[in-house]
């Protein structure tokens, strides 16, 4: 049998983006939204998540390894393309370019975000509570960095759901692909709202 590895890696890349990474992202933003109901609600939820049984194993196999694989192959995919929206400025070609741009922004954002939260908590430098995020998000530069990071991450997920449906051959007809586009717009708006509402709470309202 000839090399089928690339096919396997690309399909795995597509799958991991949705399960578990996409599911984790939505869960993460929803849990963080507890801050809207007060510091106590947030701290309780954050500590519940941080003290799940086998939490390190869950983190490694559900979050770190899938994201690492998705990121490494993703960067390769970004540099493989020769973008041509100037010549062929169609909607899907723009989405193709934006998917690659947001992928890179998201990678930088996640690296920074994990470094200043999870790694610092792990090293014992900071304590995991609402004060940690408040300290970060009340700095205007970091607040806007988080706004861009969240929008970019959610866009990458929403548009990735579309390509997932096409790449696995779920949506074949132009009509079904169109409907999936509408669906992903709704996903983008709803999930972005959840994420932005949370950081606005941390920055201005808490």
């Amino acid at each position: 049998m000839k090399e089928h590895r690339e096919f396997f890696y690309r399909r795995l890349h597509s799958l991991l983006g949705v399960v578990p990474i996409g599911i984790f992202l939505v869960q993460h933003l929803v849990v963080n939204h507890f801050i809207v109901y007060g510091r106590e609600s947030f701290d309780k939820a954050a500590n519940f998540m941080a003290n799940l049984p086998f939490v390190l194993m869950l983190e490694i196999f559900v979050i770190y390894l899938p994201i690492l694989f998705h990121a490494v192959l993703g960067v390769y995919i970004v540099f493989e393309a020769k973008n041509n929206v100037r010549r062929y400025g169609y909607f899907r070609n723009w989405m193709f370019l934006l998917q690659r741009i947001t992928g890179i922004i998201t990678l930088i954002f996640i690296a920074w975000h994990v470094w200043e939260t999870r790694v610092q908590v792990g090293l014992g430098n900071v304590e995991l509570n609402s004060g940690l995020m408040e300290g970060i998000l009340t700095q205007p530069f970091l607040f806007w960095f988080y706004v861009i990071g969240i929008l970019s991450t959610v866009f990458h997920l929403a548009n990735g759901l579309w390509s997932f449906c096409v790449s696995w051959g779920i949506a074949q007809t132009p009509r079904s692909q169109q409907i999936v586009t509408y669906f992903t717009v709704i996903v983008f708006i709803v999930v972005s709202y959840i994420g932005l509402r949370t950081i606005i709470e941390f920055a201005y309202l808490i």
């Binding site: 690339e6 096919f7 690309r10 493989e80 169609y90 899907r92 070609n93 193709f96």
Partner: peptide, 8 residues
């Protein structure tokens, strides 16, 4: 698998 769905 190399198709990136730009749909050009």
């Amino acid at each position: 698998a190399e198709c990136g769905n730009s749909q050009n």
